[in-house]
Design a protein around this nucleic acid. Structure first.
Lengths: 190, 190
DNA sequence: TGCCTAAACAAGCAAGCGCTTGGGCACAGC
DNA sequence: GCTGTGCCCAAGCGCTTGCTTGTTTAGGCA
């Protein structure tokens, strides 16, 4: 364990970034959460941006690892999507703060050169989804009239949405996954 | 037409708020977009918040009007949902900036007393969705195992997501609506 | 012409921002 | 015992923020 404090700061900063937004969170707030003064942060980090960088790059690395392993785990497109949804559910939960940052502050991060890897990684994710949807269409597993690109956008965003729900009334994260998969493959009709 | 400039400022500010976030947009930027100085804004508005207020309250008023008219237009729950999706598509397009603000800066607005009506209006929207899903379940139109509350959250968020897609590659807003309805009722399976 | 008002400008205030600086304290190795 | 190093504090710098102030300008009307 090289530096517990450093890791704490990253985690606490992530929670604040997710809660208030990256730009709206001040280094003084981050420092206060960690029990030190703002100037002391700069002993551990170059800048506020590098804290955000650490959170986002770790998140995308884990997500991409999930996707790649799902693709190599099965030949069946429907099965691959199911794997992505199920393993993704846990990974996303571990990186809840980073995902929320990505959703809320995308317009900021996507314009900063430092975070250009975000676009690259998201393109790889898109490519995997589209490849699976297309293969499923060809194989006759999915509807032949499926608009692959539109469906991808809907599904990926749907999958990333529930992360910030506080499922209070008797529904767990697993319930959300099952409801999602059911809706995905069968819709709401009887 | 009481004041063209005032309306222009609201519209331009909305675009900036949607693009950069509410807190990250400065009154100087808004003023520059309108071709005046920041101080002159305060002849038309009390504060930056009141500009945001104008955008958000107008948006929610229009959305709720859609929902109420859809409910009173049909007895069939599936038909009501379809009406909400179709009319909502146009209303959401008209209020694109306000919807984006709501999505990106929800954590900010929802904690400000001034914007407490947001919670109230969203609760009414939720009640309408849930009532229709429940009625459809009872009537045997929807799956009997449908988790009503989870489904509502997924659907409403899904419906509000595509507003910021730049549908470049040959897919229009109408295509998105059709793809959504198809996915909603039938899923992706063949 | 003289007056009134809406709408703009020019300037700047207090507060808060990210970040830097210089120094102090505890503890390691010698 | 001395010194080096890791970690932190106290103070504050330069800049930006939302907003205020006092003044100027343009146009309608008696």
């Amino acid at each position: 364990m090289r530096s517990q404090r450093r890791a704490d700061v990253v985690r606490l900063a992530g929670e604040l970034f997710a809660q208030k937004g990256f730009r709206a969170t001040t280094v003084r707030e981050i420092a206060e959460a960690a029990g030190i003064l703002s100037g002391s942060l700069y002993h551990h980090f170059d800048s506020k941006e590098s804290i955000g960088d650490e959170l986002l790059s770790a998140f995308l690395a884990d997500v991409l690892a999930d996707y790649r392993s799902a693709v190599s785990a099965s030949e069946d497109p429907a099965r691959v999507l199911e794997l992505i949804v199920r393993s993704g559910s846990r990974t996303l939960a571990r990186h809840r703060a980073a995902l929320t940052m990505l959703q809320n502050d995308w317009n900021y991060f996507s314009t900063q050169p430092r975070f250009s890897y975000l676009r690259k990684d998201l393109r790889e994710i898109e490519a995997i989804w589209i490849a699976q949807l297309e293969r499923g269409k060809q194989a006759g597993v999915f509807r032949p009239d499926l608009n692959v690109r539109l469906t991808y956008r809907l599904l990926r965003d749907m999958l990333w949405l529930p992360i910030n729900w506080r499922h209070g009334s008797g529904s767990s994260a697993d319930d959300v996954v099952e409801a999602f998969l059911r809706l995905l493959f069968d819709g709401i009709s009887r």
